[in-house]
Amino acid sequence: MAKTNPGRFFEDYEVGQVLHHAVPRTVTTGERALYHALYPARHALYSSDTFAQASGLPQSPVDDLAAFHVVFGKTVPDVSLNAVANLGYAEGRWLKPVYPGDTLRSVSEVIGVKQNSNGKTGVVWVRTKGLNQRDEVVLDYVRWVMVRKSNLDTPAPDTVVPDLKQALSIDDLVIPQGLDFSDYDFALAGEPHRWGDYEVGETIDHVDGVTVEEAEHMLATRLWQNTAKVHFDLTFRPEGRLIYGGHVISMARALSFNGLANTQMIVGLNGGAHANPCFAGDTIKAWSEVLDKAETGVPGVGALRLRLVATKGGAPFELRGPEGKYKADVLLDLDYWALMPI
């Protein structure tokens, strides 16, 4: 009897299937130190206990994207071990801050399947929840992946494509209990720009760039216990190990500090696409566009809806070509809500 796990293939998924992912993980301040070593992350709320406490939280949480990576990484052996690519995200919500000492686990439900016309691959949609040691949901999101078939003779399943929101409304967002930016210290945060200084339609070139190195990517992918073969095994991607899409997301978010230093917390993920593959040697740059603004009703706290675009050195503010497809130098197109002081 085989004792190893070859991973699931497209024909192994069916709508309604619930996947309980191994292995729970207790996060510590070590996650923060490694996260800040891998990315130029320096948003004050995630860097300083005293800044977080002055903002109404008990201590500095684990970075929102670090929590996302931990939850995401748990799902890989069951969802995307045999994936060709991770295609997109929707309806993501950060529901509770994650603090050092919390233990996270992940559960996913298959909500859609669609075989591709080539008969060799198919798309699988899952809704994933990250839970802490109190069984509180700290994060949930939908993602879809393209997965290989193992047996090409397996009949195609009935197509089910989930009806997903194009964007979360302000009422869908959960503001952390106690958060209060009434006495926000702009000098310590690093920039003077507040919610009222941003206008819908405004674009921001984040100026800086970081060249991706193999060693950093391998460390990051192992840190989040992401076992997808395309990130490690060159026989699955002979042109190069595919850089984990979350690595690109975190790098772009960190680069966005220059111009968006006061977008302290990500609370909603409206959508996202990994437009083109990223490989070691690519230089990631980023730009943002303000898509919407909203007041939250929480003291001093406003929300910005932002498009975050990562490129491999391409000109800012150029997303698609004349035919409507993403330009070849666009790596990431991410649509999210973030909280900042009014």
Rank of each mutant, 00 (worst) to 15 (best):
A315C: 01
G297L: 10
E295V: 02
L219A: 12
P238C: 08
L308K: 01
I249W: 09
I266C: 05
A328K: 15
E199F: 14
A215L: 12
E191H: 08
P277R: 13
K285C: 11
Y326G: 01
H217K: 01
G240L: 14
A294N: 04
A220P: 00
S256T: 13
M218A: 14
L242V: 06
H274L: 13
Y198V: 03
V207D: 07
N258S: 15
V212K: 06
R222C: 07
M251Q: 14
S288Q: 03
W195Q: 11
H206V: 13
A286N: 10
T235R: 15
G321L: 04
N262Q: 10
R320I: 04
V200W: 14
G268L: 13
T311I: 03
A273L: 12
Q264W: 06
L234A: 11
F257E: 08
H206R: 09
Y326K: 04
E214K: 09
E295W: 00
H231P: 01
W195P: 01
G302C: 06
A187I: 12
G271E: 13
F236M: 11
G196E: 15
G271C: 10
S250E: 12
D233A: 12
E214C: 01
L291I: 09
K293C: 02
D282Y: 06
N226V: 01
D329G: 02
L291M: 14
L223F: 15
E289W: 02
H274R: 07
G302H: 06
S256D: 10
L260T: 00
G240T: 12
E216P: 00
G314H: 11
V212W: 06
N276R: 11
L255D: 03
E323C: 00
E289N: 00
K312L: 05
R307K: 07
L269P: 00
D208T: 05
H231R: 11
M218Q: 15
P238I: 09
H217R: 02
V200I: 15
A303Y: 03
R253W: 08
A254L: 12
R307A: 04
S288M: 03
G297I: 04
H206S: 12
H217V: 11
R237L: 08
A273Q: 13
G246Q: 08
A294D: 05
G324S: 07
P238R: 10
E239C: 02
I266P: 00
I243V: 15
S256G: 05
G245F: 08
Q264T: 02
L308S: 03
L291S: 06
A252C: 01
G245V: 08
N276A: 09
Q225C: 08
G201H: 11
Q264F: 07
G314E: 09
T311Y: 08
Y326N: 04
L223G: 02
Y326Q: 02
P316W: 13
R194H: 13
L223M: 15
S256P: 01
T211F: 02
N226S: 10
Y244L: 07
